[in-house]
């Protein structure tokens, strides 16, 4: 049985008819056509599906769509439009924090959320914030380098 929800996605009001147990990821990708958010493990383990709900990172693959009714969602498409998000994306590119790229939208969203809350995180704080995002290519060093580039405001040598 479908249920109506209305919420903001990247600052734009949207409505959707959803099935009871639909996930936010289903709605974002299939109903709204925002395919930047990736489906990885579908169990809230890998972080590829990370989006922001009211500014907090959430695994959209296990978040009930019905629960975002009246809330604000930001996806990687919205992050890319912001100053912080753009800086993070460029730093990932420069530092080699991207290989296959599948985990990257989730990482960028989580890093952007961290930097919005804490513009100068320590490396430990970065590692803790990124614990819920898994990357099988880079070994994480380049991702940490990328965040360091953004935090320090310096170009990578």
């Amino acid at each position: 049985m479908s249920s109506g929800i209305s919420f903001a996605v990247n600052g734009r009001g949207v409505t959707a008819q959803i099935d009871g147990a639909a996930t936010l990821l289903d709605v974002i990708r299939n109903d709204l056509g925002l395919t930047g958010t990736k489906e990885g493990c579908t169990e809230g383990e890998c972080g590829a599906c990370t989006v922001l709900i009211d500014g907090k990172p959430v695994h959209s693959c296990i978040y009930p769509a019905v629960s975002v009714d009246g809330h604000s969602v930001v996806t990687i498409e919205g992050i890319s439009d912001g100053e912080t998000g753009r800086a993070v994306q460029e730093a990932f590119w420069d530092a080699g924090g991207i290989q296959c790229g599948f985990c990257t939208p989730g990482f960028i969203v989580t890093v952007a959320a961290l930097l919005e809350n804490n513009p100068a995180p320590s490396e430990d704080e970065v590692r803790i914030a990124l614990a819920g995002n898994i990357c099988r290519c880079t070994g994480y060093s380049q991702i940490l380098d990328a965040v360091e580039v953004v935090v320090s405001g310096k170009e990578r040598a």
């Binding site: 809230g44 907090k56 819920g132």
Partner: peptide, 9 residues
Amino acid sequence: VGGWQTQAV
């Protein structure tokens, strides 16, 4: 309990 994404909700 999980990562940030789990702890947030």
